[in-house]
């Protein structure tokens, strides 16, 4: 792979928990993202998965500089975003766009498709008014919407179509990277497939890089080159999608893969499912050592001592000190 377009170096995003009415005191810290290092190559699709609350959205918003990093750095094409001046940051941010889970909430209900899509074009001076209609039509066609619906409002579209509008808006400034935060989680199965195909096509045709966030593994394998599995703000396994999903190494990844209900009664009834006990613990007081140890079927006393770093194992990287021992 070529030089990475996006790089995260030991990124941490913590939220202070404050209490008190007159004098807000900090009483604790939510370690939503707690030491993430990864890179994204040009044209690459990285799937990011983990249970809700593990920090996926916080990581996405940190990459987009919508949240300040507590420590560590985010580099876009080799430039550290936090060091950039406002003007340069604005230019660089054009290369980074986001698509959200809920297209109902992320689109302005009072703006027509034309207004929604032409706004970024006009504000960034990509084209003038006379050109906007043509460019909006082109964007709509790219995402599979008929340009004749340009003057309609979001509520006149179905969920899947609204997600297409949100994707078109993300594409308006011809970004290099799209971060899609659970873009199909709210959609019906038959519509999910349409949106997944669309994203795959856009990556192919426009040479985009994509960070595709999902809370389970069932949709990511199909679209991703690599997959990163997150648990309590850290990456516990990262590698080629096929490897990670077909032959997971980290006990948590194994449980996630095992928890996906298979649409095949034969397989489903005869397999031994790994059922993890308990809910994901809170990032406010994460467990010591390997934060997964209270739910891990392979944990030993040593797991409570130190957080295992990501280390190469079986052709990918895994953060578990007992790899090979179970």
């Amino acid at each position: 792979m070529s030089e990475p377009i996006l790089e995260l170096r030991d990124v941490r995003t913590h939220f202070p928990i404050r209490q008190g009415f007159f004098f807000k005191r900090q009483v604790g810290t939510v370690k939503a993202v707690d030491g993430v290092t990864l890179s994204l190559a040009r044209g690459e699709v990285l799937g990011l998965v983990g249970e809700s609350g593990c920090g996926k959205s916080t990581l996405a918003r940190t990459i987009l500089q919508l949240l300040p990093t507590t420590s560590g750095s985010v580099l876009l094409s080799g430039r550290t975003l936090a060091d950039c001046e406002a003007g340069e940051l604005m230019r660089l941010r054009r290369d980074l766009q986001m698509v959200f889970q809920d297209p109902y909430a992320s689109l302005n209900p009072r703006m027509t498709v034309f207004a929604t899509l032409s706004e970024p074009l006009l504000t960034h001076g990509v084209c003038d008014r006379s050109e906007a209609t043509r460019q909006v039509a082109e964007l709509m066609e790219r995402v599979g919407l008929a340009p004749r619906f340009m003057q309609k409002y979001p509520h006149e579209f179905s969920g899947g179509q609204r997600q297409r509008i949100a994707i078109a808006r993300a594409l308006a400034l011809r970004p290099q990277i799209i971060i899609a935060d659970e873009p199909v989680s709210a959609l019906d199965v038959s519509i999910q497939a349409q949106i997944l195909n669309l994203l795959a096509k856009l990556v192919r045709e426009m040479g985009l890089s994509l960070v595709f966030i999902a809370h389970d593994l069932s949709v990511v394998k199909h679209i991703s080159d690599r997959v990163a599995v997150m648990y309590l703000g850290r990456i516990v396994e990262i590698g080629e999608a096929r490897r990670v999903i077909d032959d997971p190494q980290h006990p948590y990844t194994r449980a996630l893969v095992s928890a996906i209900p298979r649409p095949d009664p034969e397989v489903e009834r005869n397999r031994q499912r790994i059922v993890l006990p308990g809910d994901p613990p809170s990032p406010i007081n994460p467990p010591s050592g390997c934060t997964f140890h209270p739910r891990c079927p392979h944990a030993v006393d040593a797991c409570k001592a130190a957080f295992p770093e990501l280390r190469p194992a079986a052709g990918r990287e895994v953060a578990c000190s007992r790899i090979g021992a179970f």
């Binding site: 199965v189 038959s190 394998k221 080159d225 096929r242 999903i245 996906i260």
Partner: peptide, 22 residues
């Protein structure tokens, strides 16, 4: 069609089967 459009565990590269329309 519903069965064919399940994305779970389908390998990368193949076009997912979709049901057109709504």
């Amino acid at each position: 069609a519903l069965q064919q459009s399940i994305p779970s565990l389908q390998p990368k590269g193949v076009e997912l089967f979709t049901i057109p329309g709504m």
